[in-house]
Write a protein that binds this DNA or RNA. Sequence first.
DNA 1: AAAATAAAAGATAAAAAGGTCTTTTAATAA
DNA 2: TTATTAAAAGACCTTTTTATCTTTTATTTT
Lengths: 150, 150
Amino acid sequence: MLSRASKYAILSTLYLAEHASKEKKMSVKAIANSINVPSPFLAKLFQQLVKCNIISSTKGPNGGFYLTIENENKTVCDIIEEIDGTNKLDDCFLGLAKCDGNNPCPVHFIVEPFKKKIFGKFRDQTIKEFANEVEAQGSVLFLSGLAVKK
Amino acid sequence: MLSRASKYAILSTLYLAEHASKEKKMSVKAIANSINVPSPFLAKLFQQLVKCNIISSTKGPNGGFYLTIENENKTVCDIIEEIDGTNKLDDCFLGLAKCDGNNPCPVHFIVEPFKKKIFGKFRDQTIKEFANEVEAQGSVLFLSGLAVKK
DNA sequence: AAAATAAAAGATAAAAAGGTCTTTTAATAA
DNA sequence: TTATTAAAAGACCTTTTTATCTTTTATTTT
Ligand code: FES
Ligand code: FES
């Protein structure tokens, strides 16, 4: 459904929203360690995310990654579209060329409501809002000691 | 979520349930053409499915693939487990090492009910029952002219 | 028995995804 | 202004997934 790359990107952007700021930038390594993700790979992803203005960075001592107000108003959808190219969330669960109520695959009517729900969330909620909710709910972005599933 | 291989396997097994029988076996090519899937690849998959007794085959003229009663009582879960090795349906949507209500990722409580639903269906319904439902509902296993999404 | 048919088996190839490493550039602090 | 720090850039490698091709084996029909 989502590539590992976009999962990494989502988790680490939310992590930035929670833990970094213009005053307290974070290095790739710090983030990679925190959420248990390979750091050179994450570095590549971050370059991409900076380029398309989803996260921000400065070089040099005390440099690192952080989110601006503008960044905080991006959405998870923006991340997915940037990293996975197209939005894979809309794909048919069984691989039909098109997910479509007029030509439903055998599980379409189970999948459709879920897709609507999660897609709505990813599209309508800003990163900032999402991160706030994550904090409020006590959701986790990593499992201590455990790497993200390979 | 599911590999392309297991999607092919699911679609073609349901197709067999609907269109083939011990009296009317079908060749890989015929099925591959019907559901728009690369036939040498499907052939490989079918070998695997025969070996683990999810579908049946006979060689020679008028040979081909079909389902026995025993085959019809297998489940979609059996297919997924055979092809993808482990059941990827249970993975965390955001890639955490474990999908778990005690350490929920930010979308866990949206994903969980869906997973329960679709996993339940794949586990509790036999291929036969599933195929009957597909016919009754008029679900499609392919989009005429359109290949399965690559 | 011979010819034809269709799967089985296995080798191989192409593509995509995931991951690493090295060099360059920009910013800062000493 | 020099040394240091950390990201940017890009080359490169590995593994997994997807796909193809060729040869062999089993079955059936003639
Ligand atoms: S058609 Fe398959 S999920 Fe919608
Ligand atoms: S923990 Fe992520 S989907 Fe359950």
